[in-house]
Each structure stands twice: as structure tokens, then as C-alpha cells.
Design a binder for these strands. Structure first.
Lengths: 118, 118
DNA sequence: GCCAACTACTTGACATAGAATAGTAGTATA
DNA sequence: TATACTACTATTCTATGTCAAGTAGTTGGC
């Protein structure tokens, strides 16, 4: 349902999600795209994820290591650095507090509509 | 607390909030900045809100009328158009569903931490 | 009547980050 | 060696928030 013209809404959230996912389990770009699709973000493309990972690496929030694959080119596995975990914690708090405000405002428009996103 | 380096997190959300606020009550730019500050978004500047309103107007999502003020220049009062209300409804649904996913993911990082953002 | 202060809106240069698209390269299989 | 799938890289475009400055109307002190 919906989630077709998010575009801007994803800004800033994607890097947070990526940090979270690799913090749950070391992962590589291609797989991260699939994991994002699995949790419902089906419109996120490789061309969005790879640059985001490169940004995170350049900023020192994730570290990467190449691991040979038996089904294609080597995979670049990412895991958060200490700075990455800090950023994730801070970013999560940021997002939570903004979401609380936004949610409180926008929720008024959906008086008692059942949500199935949980 | 926090809400200091949101920057990107606000993308797309601001126009939604503006549509919501003027849909609650017709309002003008200067006042909208103050209303945003009141609900907790204290870092939003005029230079952010006015261009956002101009964009919404250019896109036909809000209409504006000038009303003379007794304490300064004329105020430009905004209210949503039909397209604006549609955009608000669609955008709210979009945000809610994204927030559900993001919240479900990120919430795991804060097992039982009390939130005071409500 | 002029100047300061406050209200309110406008504008333009800038940075960030996601979208779109294409391209490169490794492995396997036929 | 050609095809298909996996996986990463590179380039360009665009939307939108930030920053900073500026315009203009009203009021009040002097």
C-alpha cells in the first residue's frame, strides 16, 4: 500500500536504516537492498543504497571488508564503527523525537484508522 | 533535547506539516514559523518556511490571500486547496507507513526507554 | 519628519542526499 | 565464448532545507 512517492521522506532515514541493519548483522550492499525490500521498503534501488554506503564509509561511520563470493564478484561487507553506533543512537533519538511531533500532528487526521504497519 | 542535526530528516515532512497546520487554521508564514516552534520544531527558520510555502503555492496545493495587518506589512494567509488536502492525506499515509517500518526497526535499539516527545 | 525596531515576506547561492541510468566485472553454465 | 546472474561503481539530475541578506510596512521616540 502507498509508499510509492515517498522520495523526500526517506532522506536521512536511509542511512539510519542501513546503520541499523548492519548493526544487527554484518551485510553487503546487494543484500541490504533485499533486506530493505523485505521490511517493506520495496522501492529502494541499488543506485540509492550503494552511494549511501559509500557516504557512510567516507564519513567513517561504517567499515568494510571484501569477502570473495562463490556466486559473483567479491562482496563488500559493512559493519558500523564506533562513530557509526554513536550516529545511529543519536540519529534514532532525533528521528524518534521528530516522529513524535509529526505523528502527534498528523495523527489527528486519522481519528481511529487501524494501522497494520507494526 | 537533540533535534539539533535533523537537517535531512525534515525533508518532505515540512510541507506535510505546513499543509496540516493551515488545514487546522488559516495562517501566514510568520505565524507558521511560530506555530512550528511551539510544537517543538524550534530550529525551523523563516528562510525554510517561506520557500516551502511558495513551492506549495506554485504546485497548486495551497492558495493565498493578502490581508492588511495593523502591525506591519500585509500578511499572506494560506489555506489548502482540494489538491492540497489530497496531498496531505496521501502524504500522511505515506509518512505513517514509512514511520511504521522505521519505527519498528529503530525501536529495537531502545528496549524500554521512556519517551517524552508526546 | 527622521530613525530605530519590530513585523512579515522575498530572494539567491549553497549543500546534501536520494533517483535514474548506465557501466564494469566476477562467476557459472551451456 | 556467449549468456545470465551477482555485485559494485560512476555520473548526472533534482528536490529541498540552510544560510544570509535584503525589502517593505507600521509604530513610536525624539
Amino acid at each position: 500500500m502507498s509508499s510509492e512517492h515517498d522520495s523526500q521522506l526517506l532522506k536521512g532515514v536511509l542511512s539510519l536504516l542501513l546503520l541499523h541493519l548492519i548493526s544487527e548483522r554484518e551485510s553487503y550492499g546487494y543484500e541490504l537492498v533485499q533486506r530493505l525490500h523485505q521490511v517493506g521498503l520495496t522501492e529502494i534501488l541499488e543506485g540509492t543504497v550503494y552511494p549511501a554506503l559509500a557516504r557512510l564509509e567516507r564519513e567513517g561511520r561504517v567499515s568494510a571488508r571484501l569477502v570473495a563470493s562463490n556466486a559473483g564478484p567479491a562482496r563488500k561487507y559493512y559493519r558500523p564503527t564506533v562513530a557509526g553506533r554513536d550516529a545511529l543512537t543519536a540519529g534514532t533519538a532525533d528521528w524518534m523525537s521528530l516522529a513524535a511531533v509529526v505523528g502527534a500532528q498528523l495523527a489527528r487526521r486519522l481519528p481511529a484508522e487501524p494501522q497494520e504497519g507494526a
